[in-house]
Design a protein around this nucleic acid. Structure first.
Lengths: 233, 233
DNA sequence: ATATTGTTTATGTATAAACATAATGTCGAG
DNA sequence: CTCGACATTATGTTTATACATAAACAATAT
């Protein structure tokens, strides 16, 4: 005779997830409250709370004080993409990572970027063009602005052994930013850089990172032809 | 004289986040353990635990039993995209949502899809082509396979008032799937459907959803020219 | 009717205490 | 010196208890 197993919050979560998945509890429907579930599963309310909070974070449940907990109407609405360092992404595929800084100069940023910099007066900042390669094949073409007013040390950085990307990740802190995925047809320059035909559909990721109020860097990544960004839920 | 405020886990989390952001605790560095932090902040260890767990979930900290907690080497590596219902996305912009099922037939799925269906013998399943519009402008062209062997009711569904997307979300449960973003150059068909020129760069989202072992639906969304998928962290 | 006020209730949070678990480090046997 | 057993330690989890808070609901006053 084995002594009674302790109920874990994972067990509760699995049970609840299953009931939702099997439509025993239907979308929009209210589920029993924590105290009842705690009694049913034979555990403390805190354990149920932990389980349900996780499911709410995942978007499977909607919870409101006093109103109770109900199954979300449209369950899965999020996809989380891991944005790895380019080096890691390439090396994870067993390929040899490489990069080349093709252009590097102080340049006056375009108006829309000047607005985001929130500096008065037009001042030149660091502008970089870098090509990343996997086994010497073009992988990614990067166009980057670095706010040298917020990160003066960048002006002197070599980017010889460390790519601009990795240099920034290592050297400067940031706490926010935004990402935008879009698609373009390859221009002549992009086609030349990435070794594809003009007009190929290419995936583009625009990213701006901030630290507090300061914009640190704004970068546009143009991926090679056929690049796929994948995730599962 | 106000009585001492209770320390909340959010306050602890903010403090810790700030210390990381200000590089008081540097990437890779080990931070004080829970008991010490609890003493410092004047709260229970459980409160610190709650705070740190959140930061670990967010990818800012790495925690291992006995080894302690350390600041993650590359802080932000995830971007979470909310994938709203197309209707909601369009209506949120104040535009009028519409859709038209252009094609609907039982068809033999292509080999790579047959493999994912994991059914023996080639059997036709439901194939749909749908155009979604915002203010009557083409918004999204959808090509969808629905596994009518797992969801027989789909064969009879009208998709008159409810789009295939919404019908599925409402009618059938799913618990997993995968997403792939990529880019294409518009083919003649896509250009015609979406009202753009042949060769325009278009964003594509391929999605397959499962319920247990069954594949439910596999869909390719081709967005209109200039579509941007945005998120912030 | 309508606005206000109060009561009730379900979730949210804080705490101390205890035990579980994984990983590290240490010590001793061989 | 190497390997395995074992103690140590930091995080992980569960519990009971208490109080906080938001929101629904009812009762009341205007």
């Amino acid at each position: 005779m084995s002594r009674a197993e302790r109920i874990t919050w994972q067990a509760v979560q699995d049970q609840v997830r299953q009931r939702i998945s099997q439509r025993q509890w239907k979308p929009g429907q209210q589920i029993p409250h924590e105290a009842d579930l705690a009694r049913e599963f034979g555990c403390a309310r805190a354990t149920v709370n932990r389980a349900l909070r996780g499911l709410a974070d995942a978007g499977l449940l909607e919870r409101r004080r006093k109103a109770g907990t109900r199954v979300a109407l449209n369950p899965v609405r999020r996809a989380e993409f891991s944005i790895p360092l380019i080096r890691e992404e390439i090396e994870a595929k067993g390929q040899r990572f490489g990069f080349r800084v093709l252009r590097r100069e102080m340049r006056l940023p375009p108006p829309e970027l000047q607005a985001r910099l929130q500096i008065d007066g037009a001042q030149p900042i660091l502008y970089l063009q870098t090509l990343y390669t996997a086994d010497s094949q073009p992988y990614l073409f990067e166009t980057r602005w670095i706010n040298t007013l917020a990160v003066p040390s960048a002006a002197a950085a070599e980017f010889a052994t460390l790519s601009p990307n990795e240099w920034l990740v290592r050297e400067v802190a940031f706490d926010g930013g935004d990402f935008t995925f879009s698609a373009i047809a390859a221009t002549a320059q992009e086609a030349r850089m990435l070794g594809c035909k003009i007009g190929e559909g290419l995936l583009v990721l625009d990213r701006t990172t901030r630290h507090g109020a300061d914009m640190i860097t704004s970068v546009r990544l143009v991926f090679h032809r056929g690049y796929r960004m994948h995730t599962r839920i």
